[in-house]
């Protein structure tokens, strides 16, 4: 039995590690492959769009002007919501690893985990019934949805910092805020960034649903495609949404690599 125990501990540990920070090789490959893939598919779409034989409804739904506007709205709502997520979740995560608040951190994470089971579309519709249609209702829904990964990873990242390093920081005369800013946060940054990337992907995907409550985005073209039962519109819109999501994921990976402190 004693020989078996460590065997199980190893995979469990590596699961956690691989979810928080992907192996270097995979990340590097994704950094290369993603933009090329997105570019090829987008060029393919442009060529198809310019040459395809579309009827007047398809022509107007897929007009470049309309698509650009939806794309712009989609990116705008994604960035606004993600920024708010970071501004709320990172300080909250820091707070939950300080002093007495440490005790309630597991409860907060468990609650947030359970909340994650709520379907995004249900949350968005409920918010719309409560607050009315519009951009900011959409933002609120996306923020609620994106909070958990950043919060969880901020807490895990800070808890994962070697206590001896914190001790050493205090030992050379740093104050608590200094230790936080110059030792703990830099060391936890890779894990926090992984959480932010996860949140970005969640938010950009969920943003395809805010068209239902009048907050714009590429989901608009997709729903018209489905409602009018036009395959070209459906597939085009779905493809563009997927490409945007992949591009945002790539941006997240770039940020992760660029912001990773040297020496880690």
């Amino acid at each position: 039995m004693t020989t078996l125990d460590p065997t199980v501990a190893t995979p469990e540990k590596s699961v956690r590690r691989s979810r928080l920070r992907p192996a270097g090789g995979e990340s590097a490959a994704m950094l290369m492959v993603l933009p090329i893939m997105v570019a090829i598919l987008f060029i393919g779409y442009v060529i198809w769009r310019q040459t395809a034989d579309l009827d007047s409804i398809e022509e107007s739904t897929l007009a470049w002007g309309a698509i650009w506007e939806q794309l712009r709205d989609h990116i705008a709502i994604t960035l606004v919501a993600s920024a708010i997520v970071v501004v709320i979740a990172v300080p909250l995560g820091i707070l939950l690893t300080r002093g007495r608040a440490r005790a309630i951190a597991p409860a907060v994470v468990a609650f947030a985990n359970a909340g994650q089971a709520a379907p995004a579309i249900g949350l968005i519709v409920l918010l719309a019934i409560w607050l009315g249609f519009g951009f900011w209702t959409g933002v609120l829904g996306l923020v609620i949805y994106g909070l958990l990964p950043v919060l969880r990873n901020t807490i895990t990242g800070l808890q994962g910092v070697d206590p001896t390093l914190v001790e050493a920081g205090r030992g050379i005369g740093m104050s608590a805020p200094q230790v936080l800013l110059r030792v703990e946060l830099p060391l936890a940054l890779p894990v926090i960034m992984a959480g932010i990337r996860t949140a970005l992907v969640l938010v950009v995907g969920t943003a395809a649903l805010v068209t239902f409550i009048g907050a714009g985005g590429l989901g608009g073209a997709l729903t018209s495609g489905i409602n009018l039962f036009r395959f070209p519109v459906m597939v085009s819109a779905a493809l563009l949404i997927a490409l945007l999501a992949l591009l945002i994921e790539w941006v997240g990976r770039v940020l992760e690599t660029v912001l990773r402190p040297k020496g880690i």
């Binding site: 997709l222 597939v235 999501a245």
Partner: peptide
Amino acid sequence: TIPGFALVGLLM
């Protein structure tokens, strides 16, 4: 990374 709603559109 591919949003669920987009996959619905691609599969339809």
